[in-house]
Design a protein around this nucleic acid. Structure first.
Lengths: 242, 242
DNA sequence: CGTAGTCTTGACATATTTCAATGTCAGTGG
DNA sequence: CCACTGACATTGAAATATGTCAAGACTACG
């Protein structure tokens, strides 16, 4: 425990849900009061394990997290990156078990909300329910975009595309200046999200740097030419809009 | 128009939703009466176009359909296969625009339900809403599984995995005998769903045949050794269970 | 100052794609 | 009834993107 939900990050949740359905003042109030104590999770550790679900949901207030699945032989696929405001295990609220784990990429601040509290909210506050349902559908849209990325695009395109998506999503929750943001992902993690080897990710990044499209240094990414990068990755941000 | 919702296929919808939440007799009744007239769509034509959403949802009663996205240069990714009982454009009900199109793989029977009717149902029948929300989450689970498949597995594993998934999903809606079912997918379409070239899909299928794992002839697939195929594809069906 | 994690580089191996030709089969129209 | 057509499947050879292996360099941190 190291803070309470009123501080900074919780607004990311409100902001996000508000973009998905018109929350009333009371809706917002109910949500804020439902949030439990906040904990901090270190980078590279698990936030939610795979398997049977615990009795609460975790909400990311600050930091970068990911959903991932590991195969028996050690191969790993990161299937989604999560930004502040995301509910990390909404599936766990409605389904019996989770088919993947959620891990912290950077140090993360996490709030929780008990399932029974959430149940209550969802029963009484249709607008909040609508926002959460829509959120599930937005997440699905990101999965589809990633499937297109990994299934059809070259390594170079994939990396470019992912960087564009991250930039947009982080801007949406105020975690990015115009074209520069913290980038805690290891090249290995990038490979795991794009279905590429570390070595190849490295070479692609070099190329993007050589072309003057990006700077990536000391865990901070700057995009120098947004349009060119978007074209390079065939990135079309419309799927990120409600 | 060529039938009414009472005939065969509509039960696939009920069966499916019933597996996701305990529908009452009245729930089921409300649903059945909400379904509009049925139309048939020819194989290889679009059921729902990409872009702004129409005022209704399409429900697949019979046949095989897919969500797909086409890139400017013609590359195409099929991001989901849909089986009878699936709502083909639930996202269209809650979101302004669709980021992908829905097409028919085989000839399909489609029922529709108007958005305002659905709105009404969802407002009055919390169990139905729950089932639909869960359905969205199940769909997301399939996306994740596919992402793992395309991102981490070899061509051979991918094909094996997909065949296993299809078998399970078709059995769930009674469209497959124990290990044999109609398989209307072209090798090109298989490639588009797995991120592989037609030629390579062909070679992998040959291999699966040579190994005695499957027979695929005249648009019908038979799986001879379920366990071995599942092992070959690293297939774990748990993500398909509610 | 050493250590561990990460990044970078080069050489080499290989899975998969591309290209292009051929084969098969069902349907169609003369 | 047969020839023709178009969609789909199959095959081989060559090209290439990406992976693997292995070593060295950087950086952060204790």
């Amino acid at each position: 425990m190291d803070g309470d939900a009123q501080s900074g990050g919780a607004n990311a949740l409100l902001r996000k849900l508000q973009g998905l359905a018109p929350l009333s003042a009371e809706d917002r109030d109910v949500l804020m009061r439902a949030l439990g104590p906040i904990r901090t999770v270190e980078a590279r550790s698990d936030i939610v394990p795979e398997g049977p679900t615990p009795g609460y949901c975790a909400i990311l207030l600050d930091g970068l997290a990911c959903r991932y699945r590991t195969l028996d032989d050690g191969r790993r696929q990161i299937v989604l990156l999560q930004t502040p405001g995301d509910v990390l295990d909404l599936p766990g609220f409605l389904m019996r078990r989770l088919d993947h784990a959620v891990g912290a990429i950077s140090r993360c601040r996490i709030a929780t909300i008990n399932h029974d509290v959430l149940n209550d909210i969802v029963a009484r506050r249709p607008t909040i329910l609508l926002a959460l349902w829509r959120d599930s559908l937005m997440e699905a849209a990101v999965y589809r975009a990633w499937l297109v990325n990994v299934g059809q695009r070259s390594a170079y395109e994939r990396v470019a595309n992912l960087l564009c998506e991250l930039a947009v999503r982080l801007r949406l929750v105020d975690r990015a200046r115009a074209d520069s943001f913290d980038f805690p992902l290891t090249q290995e993690e990038l490979g795991d999200t794009l279905g590429l080897s570390v070595v190849h990710v490295n070479r692609v990044l070099q190329r993007l740097r050589a072309e003057g499209l990006i700077t990536l240094k000391a865990r901070r990414l700057t995009i120098h030419d947004r349009d060119t990068l978007a074209r390079a990755g065939g990135f079309d941000p419309r799927y990120l809009q409600a």
